[in-house]
């Protein structure tokens, strides 16, 4: 982390910060793709700059339709994103793509390779592809994914496709980001339905059996249907199981129709508002946690209480909870003894 000052002045988008960023933000909103790309980097690299950017673009967000694509490594997520992009482009819609790959916990580096399958859109002005590394964020996306989506949304991308890291059990944050979540499996990879049961299968709005040109796709689809049949109470939305082959564009039209059906269902009976509320609550509480943590640590470092806190815990004079609550109290947050 840079030496961020999270004191109220900087965290609430000071007038100077707003003025400094007005140029780049206006350029991005006017269609300058370089400015857009650099703003995504800015919110990713510099948390103290994010408030000023978000203050400016927030009123313009909330228009895009967000589709998440998740699933184990190598099942064909990127190829499906590429195929969906073709469909949405053919329907005249602009497509923003955020593709997340993992950061190495040892070196901090990352190999971001999802673009390889999407190269044909690189020079299409109706498509913007950005690769993000997780940078230690768990949950299958990166910490900056939300802000990157908001920037793409604000500048007018109508559909935003989010490819998560190759996910298994616990990388389920995409459900709080997307309107529709596609969980992709393929025969041989991630087809141990039993083992997947408690993992990402639960967050699927659509269950996609990709590579159905290969043997055993039918068996995997049957296993998934059986799993759905076993649900003790029928869910309000039973995810359809769709056999596709991402390398065969024809099979993707059914997938797009299923996405549309789910989106229509979501728009009924206040469901969209409910999902939005859940998503907003999730993001807000995460952000508060980040801001508060930085603020408390900063205050403790300034007053010298931080070193004392570390000393108290390591010497077993006090436990983590006692010390954390003490620091929160000293920062004026919380009153529990």
């Amino acid at each position: 982390m840079p030496d961020v000052n999270w004191s109220t002045a900087s965290a609430t988008a000071s007038a100077t910060a707003l003025a400094a960023l007005a140029g780049p933000v206006d350029a991005a909103l006017g269609g300058d793709r370089r400015a857009l790309a650099r703003l995504i980097s800015l919110v990713e690299n510099d948390p103290s700059a994010a408030p000023a950017v978000l203050a400016r673009i927030h009123p313009l967000t909330g228009r895009a339709r967000i589709i998440g694509v998740t699933g184990p490594p190598g099942v064909g997520k990127s190829t499906i994103v590429d195929g969906l992009t073709a469909r949405f482009r053919a329907a005249g819609q602009n497509v923003g793509i955020v593709a997340v790959d993992p950061t190495s916990p040892f070196t901090g580096g990352a190999l971001l390779g999802d673009r390889v399958r999407m190269q044909r859109w690189t020079t299409d002005r109706g498509v913007f592809i950005r690769s993000l590394a997780t940078r230690g964020h768990l949950g299958g996306v990166s910490g900056a994914t939300g802000d990157a989506i908001r920037l793409l949304d604000a500048v007018g991308f109508q559909v935003i496709l989010v490819e998560t890291v190759g996910a298994g059990q616990s990388e389920v944050e995409i459900m709080d980001i997307a309107h529709t979540v596609l969980v992709v499996l393929s025969p041989g990879v991630g087809d141990d339905v039993q083992a997947q049961k408690a993992g990402i299968l639960e967050i699927a709005d659509l269950l996609v059996v990709n590579k159905s040109d290969l043997p055993d796709a039918g068996r995997l689809a049957v296993q998934l249907e059986t799993m759905l049949d076993l649900a003790p109470v029928p869910p309000p939305w039973r995810p359809p199981v769709l056999k596709v082959s991402a390398i065969d564009a024809e099979t993707l039209s059914e997938l797009v129709q299923a996405c549309d059906r789910h989106f229509q269902w979501l728009k009924g009976e206040g469901r969209l508002a409910a999902r939005l509320a859940r998503r907003t609550g999730h993001e807000l509480s995460t952000l508060i946690g980040r801001l508060a943590s930085a603020e408390v640590v900063r205050a403790a470092e300034l007053s010298g209480a931080w070193d004392k806190a570390l000393e108290d815990v390591t010497s077993r004079r006090a436990d983590f909870y006692q010390v954390a609550l003490r620091l929160l109290r000293e920062a004026g947050l919380g009153s529990r003894e």
């Binding site: 070196t107 901090g108 580096g109 190999l111 971001l112 190269q119 690189t122």
Partner: peptide, 20 residues
């Protein structure tokens, strides 16, 4: 090697045009 040196590497694949 770039990744192992802590960089974020975007790999784009074969046959890229200068425009791409």
């Amino acid at each position: 090697a770039y990744r192992d040196a802590g960089m974020e590497v975007i790999y784009t694949g074969l046959h890229q045009t200068p425009e791409q």
